[in-house]
């Protein structure tokens, strides 16, 4: 009973964070066709921005939405500065890998200079602990497990049931045709980046509530999000969401039975196997397109 509860809980919790990260990566890939390697930095920056507001005296309930909005702006600016000017070049995928890596590195070191190397921590969303199925868990983690699916469902509804969401899905499929029905393609690119950055920032704030924050806290989640999108297929946003929870459960089970030490090795073994057997991802069909 204890093992089951521990794996369930760990899987749901890690899966939530991975899903929130991976969805942003997938959103940017499907709409713009580039890979954003500054995504982990968005996560870290979201946590630091929230921390700054909290240390100015705002309660976390206020600091969180403000930081998420700030991150949307950061995402937009990053897109306008290192992605948009390159659109239409040959090799765009490779070039943007490099520009986003460079921007990420700049931001990371900027944060280090601005806020210093000392680890920080955000207040929890909810204080206190409880025991479920024989496992002690914090209310903060339970809140994350409940909030994340709600946010992801809202994103899904936005993409599938609003005209703006429809426009985002359309840009993903055919840029010329999108322009010819009068869509503002540059604004939609900005919007995709803004949404991705907000979600990553939110994941960072969630993480900063139970682990210490450092300027490099985003690199491991970025790596995991990459594994998730390879696993789930990057051509949709539902694929990565399911894959994120799958990986979360896999990690939880691995670290329970084999220990934390073996978990990354096993994860990559599964990833390599996956790439050999089904390179387009478990849940993917082969085209690019949202939803």
């Amino acid at each position: 009973m204890g093992a089951f509860a521990e794996i369930m809980f760990g899987g749901l919790f890690q899966g939530s964070l991975y899903a929130m990260m991976a969805v942003g990566l997938a959103l940017v890939w499907t709409t713009i066709g580039v890979f954003n390697f500054a995504h982990g930095v968005f996560m870290m920056l979201g946590a630091y921005v929230a921390w700054q507001f909290v240390s100015l005296g705002l309660p976390i309930a206020v600091a969180l939405p403000v930081a998420v909005v700030v991150m949307a702006g950061v995402g937009w600016i990053l897109q306008a500065s290192v992605v948009r000017p390159l659109i239409g070049r040959p090799n765009i995928v490779l070039v943007v890998v490099i520009t986003t890596l460079a921007a990420g590195s700049l931001i990371e070191n900027g944060v280090l200079t601005l806020w210093g190397p000392r680890s920080k921590q955000l207040p929890s969303l909810l204080e206190g602990n409880t025991v479920i199925g024989g496992v002690g868990v914090s209310l903060h983690q339970i809140a994350i497990i409940i909030i994340t699916p709600l946010i992801l469902a809202a994103l899904w509804a936005f993409l599938n049931h609003t005209r703006l969401g429809l426009a985002l899905r359309a840009v993903a499929q055919n840029e010329d045709a999108s322009q010819l029905v009068g869509l503002n393609v540059t604004a939609l690119y900005g919007l995709a980046f803004a949404i991705a950055a907000s979600l990553a920032g939110l994941a960072g704030i969630f993480m900063g509530g139970y682990r210490f924050m450092t300027p490099v806290m985003g690199s491991d989640p970025l790596l995991k999000a990459l594994i998730v999108v390879v696993f789930g297929g990057i051509s949709s946003i539902s694929g990565p969401i399911f894959a994120a929870y799958l990986i979360g459960f896999f990690e939880a089970a691995c670290s329970y039975y084999f220990g934390l030490y073996w978990t990354p090795a096993l994860l990559f073994a599964v990833l390599i196997l996956m790439l050999m057997v089904r390179p387009e991802g478990i849940f993917a069909n082969q085209s690019r397109g949202l939803a």
Binding site: Q173, A177, V181
Partner: peptide, 19 residues
């Protein structure tokens, strides 16, 4: 006619009326 391969006809019509 490459259009939007993964959208439905109804979706295309709402996009047409976007402006």
């Amino acid at each position: 006619n490459r259009l939007f391969p993964d959208l439905s006809i109804a979706d295309c019509m709402s996009l047409g009326a976007f402006s």
